[in-house]
């Protein structure tokens, strides 16, 4: 503490100065919008950024790969079970099909299933959950009891049942996985709607005369969208995982169509011979899952305002 001893002061030190409320209220810390701030935090997360690049790469491969290497169905009985070489970069399978072309095609199919199922589940979930939360009362009660019961039924059991009953194919797979996938999303959306419905800031804007549309666009969407995007990101690898699992027990995508799951399964059939047939598609599944999960984690941390220090 400075004691009042020999302080040298300027002649005009004691001149009056008007008070400066604006200065006292000026924000010293940089103020950022929600999305800019989230993006800044995401950019700082190196792992998440690497994963984002990887996901982008996989997406490019899934879209452009099969165009460049379209011969994923062509048999070549002269050259079966060939180890990877300069012609067949990932080797060939039991019918001499080029594994590289098949992995590219498999990536397209697996990602297509992953994204489609996630989007369908999301749409159903948003409509169902949003309606339930918005309507409230006994309708909400009833709708949520139904979800409670559906969630208690093990997903895999319903999935397998549906796939056994319906005609096999990618369409059936997508349908079956969407049927089991939406309940979690519905719960999440309803929770968000309820939370925001009761939040003080919404009450304030209601008192100020904001209409339903305004409340939905200005409060509900910006608050819920972060969590929903994260959930979507986490859902895609889950679906790819399930497809691989189903392929493994013989209910997934059928040969000669390719998916990462059925390629890995075909490789496992040959195990422990022709290891490249198993480990290459398995590695693609694993790294893609890793990338989605890690990016999802990073995104969640970046979007959660509570993480802001």
């Amino acid at each position: 503490m400075i004691m009042e001893a020999n302080l040298k002061l300027a002649a005009d030190a004691f001149e009056r100065v008007p008070k400066d409320i604006a200065q006292s209220q000026a924000l010293v810390r940089p103020s950022l919008t929600y999305w800019k701030d989230a993006w800044r935090r995401l950019k700082k997360n190196k792992v998440a950024m690497v994963c984002l690049v990887f996901i982008g790469l996989i997406a490019v491969i899934a879209i452009a790969g099969p165009i460049a290497f379209p011969n994923y169905r062509a048999n070549n009985l002269e050259k079966t079970f060939a180890e990877p070489d300069s012609v067949n970069w990932f080797g060939t399978d039991d019918l001499g099909r080029d594994q590289f072309a098949r992995v590219l095609r498999g990536g397209r199919v697996s990602l297509f299933i992953g994204v489609t199922v996630s989007l369908i589940s999301l749409t159903i979930g948003i409509i169902y959950g949003g309606l339930s939360g918005y309507l409230g009362g006994w309708v909400d009660d009833l709708m949520m009891r139904i979800v409670d019961i559906l969630i208690t039924i093990p997903d895999m059991v319903i999935l397998i049942l549906l796939l056994v009953v319906l005609d096999p194919g990618i369409g059936t797979l997508i349908l079956a996985m969407s049927v089991t996938g939406w309940t979690g999303m519905a719960r999440l959306v309803r929770g968000q709607v309820l939370q925001i419905k009761e939040a003080d800031f919404v009450l304030v804007s209601k008192v100020l005369g904001a209409g339903t549309f305004r409340i939905i666009t200005r409060h509900l969407v910006p608050n819920a969208i972060g969590i929903i995007i994260v959930r979507l990101m986490m859902s895609i690898p889950g679906v790819i995982f399930s497809e691989a699992f189903l392929s493994y027990i013989g209910l997934g995508v059928r040969v000669p169509e390719a998916s990462w799951g059925n390629l890995a399964e075909a490789g496992a059939q040959q195990f422990p011979n022709h290891l490249y047939m198993f480990f290459i598609p398995a590695a693609f599944i694993m790294f893609t899952m890793l990338a989605f999960n890690l990016f999802g984690d990073g995104l969640r941390d970046a979007l959660d305002p509570k993480m802001r220090k």
Binding site: P237, A264, A268, F271, P272, I285, L290, N293, D297
Partner: peptide, 22 residues
Amino acid sequence: AIIGVSIPGFLIGTLVQYIFGF
């Protein structure tokens, strides 16, 4: 944790089988 949720069970199974069996 992230590896655990990203590796399908059949991959782990096959992998440990390969490592210990071969």
